[in-house]
């Protein structure tokens, strides 16, 4: 597991995802702040706006990548060698479940809109 996305590639993905997240959150905040939302259906329509929806989906993926590289680095640095394998497996599984749930939620927004 420690070799999944490693070395230079990990380094670059970490920077790329950091840049994306830094751009996404302020812009998404601005977009949402400029909408009038009083009903559930309105909220779903706002969230399902194609550009916003796709950007959000990419963001979810990049959050997982960013967390994987960042948390793995911390685990490799600080955990005793014997527990690194299990910890990485748990991290991978946790991120996998989280990503699955996040994508499912994004999908259901589309369905409801």
């Amino acid at each position: 597991m420690s070799r999944l996305l490693t070395g230079l590639k990990a380094h670059l993905w970490q920077r790329l995802s950091a840049f994306w997240l830094l751009m996404y959150f302020p812009l998404a905040g601005l977009y949402l702040a400029n909408q009038t939302i009083t009903q559930h259906a309105q909220l779903m329509a706002v969230l399902a706006q194609p550009l916003f929806w796709v950007a959000t989906l990419i963001t979810l993926g990049l959050i997982a990548v960013h967390a994987w590289v960042g948390v793995r680095d911390i685990l490799l640095d600080y955990l005793p060698r014997s527990s690194v394998g299990v910890a990485l497996l748990a991290l991978g599984a946790g991120l996998g479940v989280w990503l699955g749930f996040a994508i499912y939620t994004a999908w259901s927004v589309l369905v409801q809109a």
Binding site: S2, T6, G7, L8, A10, H11, R72, D73, L76, D77
Partner: peptide, 11 residues
């Protein structure tokens, strides 16, 4: 050298 341990432990 392109390895998570060999080089990229440098912070």
């Amino acid at each position: 050298l392109d390895d998570v341990y060999k080089t990229f432990r440098c912070r």
